[in-house]
């Protein structure tokens, strides 16, 4: 779910950069206010590499295949570190594999970063009282949110002359193909947090 170069108007790409830069700035500001800003860096670095490699894992969902997104997992485990981590991961994916364009890097950052921050907020709100439910909702909800932002951007950026009906139908197929991923990512977040709780509770994200 990465927007490539050349499909959306340049104005939207610029607005995407502005929005993503704003979110990164906000995140870095919050990270600086943490008692020990460097404490989260090793975890952020490792999660960035997991996020980067995950988009290469294709899950076959007949008749198509979908890629893991891990936006919710990033948000729950990294908190404010998720946004800069996602931008670094997306940049490497675009440059090395051509997954997503460089002009649309900002938009792709919003597609995955906003759900990650939302998942982080959800975990912060319910993580202590209902850890299992919060984990499941954070993982699944992030995929749904990313799908909604992606489809909204594509429809908003359709140039005149493109068959809107055909594009909307294709987007519906795309979204339906990703429904198994909604469940899968919820289960992934749940499983990771349960394993952490049992094996190394100190690594659990506070929340």
């Amino acid at each position: 779910m990465h927007l490539p170069d050349g499909l959306l108007p340049a104005g939207m790409a610029l607005a995407g950069y502005a929005g993503a830069a704003g979110l990164v700035g906000l995140s870095l500001g919050r990270i600086r206010r943490l008692p020990d800003p460097q404490a989260g860096v090793p975890r952020a670095a490792m999660m960035t590499s997991v996020f980067f490699a995950a988009s290469l894992v294709a899950v076959p969902v007949p008749p198509t295949t979908v890629h893991l997104m891990l936006s919710g997992l990033m948000g729950v485990l990294l908190g404010w570190f998720a946004m800069p981590a996602i931008m670094v991961g997306l940049f490497l994916q675009a440059v090395l594999f051509g997954h997503g364009g460089l002009t649309t890097l900002g938009l792709n950052g919003l597609i995955l970063g906003v759900p990650a921050l939302a998942a982080s907020a959800l975990w912060g709100g319910f993580g202590r009282r209902l850890p299992d439910l919060a984990a499941l909702l954070a993982g699944s909800g992030a995929v749904i949110a990313a799908l909604a932002i992606f489809a909204g951007l594509v429809l908003a950026g359709l140039p005149p002359g493109i068959d809107r009906g055909a594009e909307r139908a294709a987007l519906s197929v795309f979204v339906i193909a990703h429904l198994p991923l909604v469940l899968a990512e919820g289960v992934i977040v749940l499983a990771v947090l349960r394993i952490l709780r049992r094996v190394e509770p100190r690594l659990l994200p506070h929340g």
């Binding site: 800003p37 460097q38 860096v41 090793p42 670095a45 960035t48 590499s49 490699a53 490497l92 090395l96």
Partner: peptide
């Protein structure tokens, strides 16, 4: 190879910041 190099870079970054903390210079 590209994935391996990125993983290596991430591992290096993680160890760099861990070492800084372990030797008492954190922050």
């Amino acid at each position: 190879v590209m994935v391996a190099l990125v993983l290596w870079g991430a591992l290096g970054t993680a160890l760099f910041f861990r070492r800084g903390r372990a030797s008492g210079f954190s922050g």
